[in-house]
């Protein structure tokens, strides 16, 4: 039961774990890249003055948020391909379907949580700001773009970074559909070598490090760009 760090530093198992770590990072980055604009779009919908748009935004958020990520992954991997035409399905299966479906599920799940964070950021900006902007003659779109959004985004950054940490942790669930990310590889090493201690320690350190780095970024951001209210 001794801890053998050698497998963490080189060799076949080390290779698996590193590959898994890299895929986890990739999943996080790609999903983030899609989730943020998706979240911003949904946030704008939810704060729109047009009621049907608001309702649609709310529906999207509640429908996605109240279903666990694991169920989303199962749906996109097992059910969604059935809905595709034959040719599209073939293309999907030929191109890393596990990763593609994981990205779709993660994007939607993280996206709606980011939408809520951005929405609360928008709501944190006093209505008087928009009024002031409009009084100067700015049109609604310009007022939103130049006065509301910059302040809203600054207020949103800390919860968004917190959401990014959640996204990073959530990539672990992609193992359920066979995406070969870090948890998958850690379990694989455990099955092959029974060295659960080393494999899980590697995974723990990896998750801890990236989470803490992102949290540190959030902390530094808040120090450097504090939310300044009049």
């Amino acid at each position: 039961m001794l801890f053998d760090p050698s497998i963490l530093q080189s060799g076949e198992y080390h290779g698996w774990l590193v590959q898994g770590f890299i895929l986890s990072i990739q999943l996080t980055v790609i999903s983030f890249a899609f989730a943020l604009p998706f979240g911003a779009l949904v946030a704008v919908m939810r704060t729109s003055t047009f009621a049907p748009l608001r309702a649609l935004g709310a529906t999207v958020v509640e429908a996605i948020r109240n279903v666990p990520l694991l169920a989303h992954l199962l749906f996109w991997y097992f059910a969604f391909p059935e809905l595709l035409p034959e040719s599209a399905r073939e293309i999907l299966y030929a191109n890393n379907p596990e990763v593609v479906c994981a990205v779709i599920a993660l994007t939607l799940y993280a996206g709606v949580h980011m939408a809520e964070d951005i929405r609360s950021g928008i709501r944190a900006v006093p209505a008087t700001q928009l009024e002031a902007a409009r009084s100067l003659g700015l049109g609604r779109a310009a007022a939103v773009r130049l006065v509301l959004l910059p302040q809203a985004l600054r207020a949103s950054v800390p919860p968004l970074l917190s959401q990014t940490v959640n996204l990073w942790k959530d990539t672990s669930v992609a193992t359920v559909i066979g995406a070969a990310e870090l948890m998958y590889q850690a379990a694989r090493v455990e099955t092959a070598s029974f060295r659960s201690l080393e494999a899980f320690t590697f995974a723990t350190l990896a998750y801890l490090t990236v989470s803490l780095v992102i949290s540190l970024l959030a902390h530094l951001f808040q120090r450097r760009y504090p939310v300044r209210t009049t």
Partner: peptide, 23 residues
């Protein structure tokens, strides 16, 4: 609190299910 929030629940689940019995 910081540590628990920094690791995925799944990882803790694996620790307890696969590693703990060995100990």
């Amino acid at each position: 609190v910081q540590v628990v929030r920094a690791v995925p629940l799944l990882l803790v689940l694996f620790w307890v299910y696969f590693f703990l019995p060995a100990v």
